[in-house]
Design a protein around this nucleic acid. Sequence first.
DNA 1: ATTCATCTCA
Length: 878
Amino acid sequence: MLLLTKTTSTTMWVSPQHHCPGQTSITSQNGFVSFPKSSTTSRAVSFNMGNPHTTLPPSGSFKKPINQPITDCNTQIRKFCEVGNLKMAMDLVCNAQKSELELATYCSVLQLCADLKSLDEGRKVHSFIDSRGIEMQNALAPKLAFMYLSCGDLREGRRVFDRMANEKVFLWNMLLSEYAKIGNFEESIMLYERMVEFGVEANSYTFSCILKCLAAKKSVAKGERVHGYLLKLGFGAYNTVVNSLIAFYFKCGRTESARKLFNELCDRDVITWNSMISGYTANGRAEKGVEVFIDMLSTGIRVDLATIVSVLAGCANVGVISLGRSLHAYAIKAGFNKEITFNNTLIGMYTNCGDIDGASRIFYNLGERSVVSCTSMIAGYARDGLSDKAIALFHEMKMEGIKLDIFSVTSILHACACSGSLEDGKEVHNYIRENNMDLDVSVSNALMDMYAKCGSMEDALSIFSQMPIKDIVSWNTMIGGYSKNSMPNEALHLFGAMQQELKPDIVTLTCVLPSCASLAALDRGREVHAHLLRNGLAFDNYVVNALIDMYVKCGALVLARSLFDKTPVKDLVSWVVMVAGYGMHGFGREAIAAFKKMRKAGIVPDEVSFISILHACSHSGLLHEGWRFFDIMRNDCNIKPKLEHYACMVDLLARSGKLLKAYRFVETMPIEPDASVWGALLCGCRIHHDVKLAEKVAEHIFKLEPDNMRYYVLIATIYAEAEKWEEVKKLKERIGRRGLRKNPCCSWIEIKGKHHIFVAGDNSYPQAKTIDSLIKEWSTKMKAEGYFPKLRYALTKGENMQKETPRCGHTERRAMAFGIMSFPPGKILRITTNLRVCSDCHEMAKYVSKKIGNEIVLRDSNRFHHFKNGSCSCRGYW
DNA sequence: ATTCATCTCA
């Protein structure tokens, strides 16, 4: 039934062949017989698979004795073979005497085994041949190899093949395509090279197959050599070969080469046109594909299903729904709308163009629903953020008994990942285990991604470590997962391990950069940058923006700026990264200038851009400018402020000492304030020592986020600075009751790519003696010169809180002293600390930058401090 | 015995 519809459809839409003179001359030149297109039908009923030379016995290999009876067993066996009765033929073979059977008879039986794909019977024939000591000669060995290859026993087929004289191109082709079928393209390519070396002349089938393999491996150079060779053999105008070449060049991204071939080919068939359309689409040039389609219509070639599907996929890629709709109408007229393949693509087109309702209308009106239809719909829902509907459809499929394949499970996992629904994700994981799909690399990758996006890196790692074969996506998913889950050490560690196994690509490097940024690992970041430059990957905007961000966050603002200046096409993200960078480093005026320049360049700011400019204003205490941007956002740009924007404004007001105004601002917000908004106010209360307001604010916060340690620390500090030790004690008890733990403070400095970490409470670091004495020397001198360190700290271990080392353990100054000891004078010290910098260390950094003369760039949890010649870029705003 | 066509993961 299926076969019937297929044949009718091809014959219906294929145009009459118009032969150009070139083709006829080429075919005769090479001795090729051209078959009519309708040979598909005859192939379906005939069992004669081999070429005439192998099915007919070689002349002279057997001679019928004249006096033999008509019912000779050779004749009988061959008669059974002709009608396809393998059982009877085998019975006769089993019972025959050794000398009785001719070579050609074995060949016939083997041919039938191949046609019927009966490996067992074929093996039996092989063992007869061996046990009867029949010489493997002439047609027998090739036929045996053919039988094994046809029945899917590639290994045995190869063994027979290797032991015979193989000058037959047919068998070489078959072997090549079998290796290609199982994805072993390397072996196929190697065999092709050996074949050419042997002097076996390739034909059109060879070229089709080898070009496919080379396309899969993206071996452009080898492909070009094959191209040259096939021209030499006279295939330059041979339709199927050129079609294969076109597909090859497209798959390697060489659209111009493909176009040139197309232009020069006179015998273009429907496949040629389809290849052009899909080739352009696959290379992100869908508009070109549509152009080709329009040309195709004007030539009068009948379009087929593949044409429509390719053009629709192109519409989906560029999001041209108008063309998609007219194609939809056209396809209905042409009768394609009964084809499930067409409908599946249509669903994809509508979802990609953002018309999810149009897609689901088609989906729910489908007479027959395949896995692919469901997958397209699930993918569409996931893209549109409708994860619930995607997951519901998954359950529907299970109910209907539709078996999910690797595509559908990866789609559904993607939906779970997008919505962060770990429970649903685990259910899908169970389904995958039950159906033994967890061996597939793509499925495992999707599982890891789901777990990573749901925040469970342990589950992701357990899958990763159990994968027998990992591809580059597996590594990238893990590294990116660690990066996004704030596990930068793990990300960098895995990045190192990956480099032992395979070469990182552009995705790996962009996944690693945020981790370098978060650890302020400037040397590692520069290595990544160098890697990108060496491989010519540093031109993609996404990558360049990640690089600028990395330099900003590693404290190398100058490097960030010079990279930014060199970027020819600056997009919104490039500008925003730079604005945020200036802001973080305390250069509010520069941030404002950059923001203005961005708008002048015609780039429209979005929500996120306003967060960064408002932050920049608050880090530099630019209250009026901040208000102005808040108004611009609401009035000029029509962006409704979100919680982050309100938090920035509260921060700005509170830092400037306008605490009551800030409080009223929070109370009158049109949206419900969250802990971060109140937290900004609490921060202001600390700076301006307003204990009463702080208590009021804290009550709001503890209602919203009772378990966030950050706020307990902040309010405790406020009490401590007001010397309300009773309140500090109560707060400590409250923390104890909730079982909260403090994040240990640590600071680090990178020296020659190695991190030297100082953790609070750990006094056994290397060179402790020298470091401590250097710090002591500084404190003594500071006291003598009139610096007054504060001695009020909160949340320490003992009872006598005034006299203790603070929570930060002064790790910042240890890193600083170590840097001074290790670096030559004049070198910039880059230090990172995981909490807010303590005011004592802040003072000491000022002192060191003046007395020793080194510039110090200190990153705390909130911003950067540039110490130069005794002053800090934060100007007290922190 | 070739060549084109729908759904997946960073």
